[in-house]
Design a protein around this nucleic acid. Structure first.
Lengths: 207, 207
DNA sequence: GTATTTCCGTACCGCTCGGTACAAAAGAAC
DNA sequence: GTTCTTTTGTACCGAGCGGTACGGAAATAC
C-alpha cells in the first residue's frame, strides 16, 4: 500500500535524532519548539503533523533513545554470567555517558527528574522507563539464581537496584562534566561492590 | 541601628523555606513566579525587593538548603574514621532523601541537571555546588590517609567520587518514589564497596 | 503633628511559550 | 490533465512567563 499525497520532505528518524540532542541537552521543559524545529530543520506544522505535539515528540524520542543509544544495556543482559552482565553494564554505561559527539549524561535523567505542575506526566514517564530497565536487570539476576550462577539467598532486585543507582549517579556526574576516566574509577569500585554482594566473598549484603 | 520605614510583614527564612519546597518539587524552570509567590504568601514586588529576581531567590534557597537540609553531611565529616564518615553520609543521605514532610529527592539534583539555553548558569551552579561537597569529602579522606586511618596508596578523590555518585543515584531514585527501605539496601551494598576499596580487604580498587 | 522611608497590592509590560488556520505547493491516482 | 490527498511555509492565536511602575499604607524620625 503506497502512500498517496505529497511525500514528506524530511526523514523521520533523522528528525528524531536531531530532537533527541536538544532534549538531551536542555531537558523536556528547557527545549523550546523554536529550538527543536530549528535543529530538526522543519517547521512547527510539520512537527505537529508527524508527531502530534511536544509530548508525543518527546515520547518517540525516548523510544528511539532506548532503541539506539541504550542497545548496550540489552546486550549486557545477554552476557553469560551475572558478573559479566554487571561489568558490561557499568562499563558501557560510562562510555555511553561520555561520548564526545553527544551531550554528556543520559536523556532519561536529563529529560527531567523534576517538571512543572503541568508536566508531571513527563517525569513520571521517565521514572517508569528507568524502572522498567531496572526490573529487566532484576529478572536477569533472578535467572542467574535459578541457573546456580548466583547464590540462592541473594536478592536479585536489590542487586539490580544498586547497579541502577550507580548508573544514574554516573549520569548526573557525567552531565556535570566529569570525564570518562574518573567515572571508570567509580565504576570499578561499584563493580567490586556488586561482586562482593552477589557472590558473597566477604559480606552478607543484599541477602 | 534600628531600621526606618515600614517593616516587612513576612519572615525571610520562612519565605525561603516555602520557596525551597516549590523549587525542590518542580525544579528551577518548572517553578513559576505565580506558584512561588503563592507558596511564600507574598506578592511579586515583595519577592523582587527582598531577593532580587528569580535566580537570586534560587541561589539563596540553595544556600539555605545547604545550611539546613544538608547539615548531616558536615556532621558526617566530623566522624572519627573514614569508615564512619562514609556510613553516616550514606545512611543520613537516604533519610534526608525520603523525609515524609518534604519532597522526595535532593534539591541540588531536582533543581535542574538540564536547563534551557538561557539558564545554563543554574545547572552549572548546581553542579559546582555538588562538586564542592565532593571535594570536601575528598579532603576528609586525604586527612584520613595522613592520620593512618586509610592506607597510604588509596585515592581519596576516587573514594569521594564514588560516594558522591551513589548519593546522586539515590537522589534520582528517591525522586522517582523508591521507598526508604529499598534505598537502605542499596546504601548497604555501597558501604561495603567503600570499605573494600578503602581498606583493601579484598581488592585493589581505587588505588 | 509632618516629613521621610520603606513595603504592599494592583495592574500592567514585552516576550516567548505551545499550538493552529489557511492557502499554496507537490506528489499520486485515474 | 484533472482530481484528490498530504505536506509545507507564513502568519497568527491565547496564555503564561519573568519582571516592573506606581500609588496607597504603615512604620520611624523629629
Amino acid at each position: 500500500m503506497t502512500q498517496t499525497g505529497r511525500p514528506r520532505e524530511f526523514d523521520t528518524d533523522q528528525a528524531l535524532d536531531r530532537a533527541m540532542e536538544v532534549f538531551w541537552r536542555h531537558g523536556y521543559e528547557g527545549a523550546s519548539l523554536t529550538e527543536l524545529t530549528g535543529a530538526m530543520g522543519i517547521n512547527k506544522p510539520s512537527l505537529y503533523a508527524a508527531f502530534g505535539n511536544k509530548e508525543g515528540l518527546f515520547r518517540k524520542v525516548v523510544a528511539r533513545y532506548a532503541d539506539v543509544e541504550m542497545a548496550y544495556a540489552r546486550d549486557a543482559l545477554d552476557q553469560p554470567t551475572a558478573q559479566q552482565v554487571a561489568a558490561m553494564l557499568l562499563g558501557e554505561n560510562v562510555v555511553a555517558l561520555t561520548q564526545p559527539d553527544r551531550p554528556a549524561g543520559c536523556l532519561s535523567v536529563q529529560g527531567g527528574t523534576a517538571c512543572g505542575t503541568e508536566n508531571t506526566a513527563i517525569s513520571n514517564f521517565l521514572a517508569a522507563s528507568r524502572l522498567t530497565g531496572e526490573q529487566a536487570l532484576a529478572t536477569r539476576f533472578a535467572r542467574a539464581v535459578d541457573e546456580g550462577d548466583l547464590p540462592p539467598d541473594v536478592d536479585p532486585t536489590a542487586l539490580a537496584r544498586f547497579l541502577s543507582v550507580v548508573t544514574e549517579g554516573h549520569a548526573v556526574h557525567a552531565a556535570a562534566g566529569v570525564p570518562r576516566s574518573q567515572l571508570e574509577q567509580s565504576a570499578e569500585i561499584a563493580l567490586r561492590a556488586f561482586t562482593a554482594a552477589a557472590y558473597g566473598t566477604s559480606s552478607a549484603a543484599a541477602r
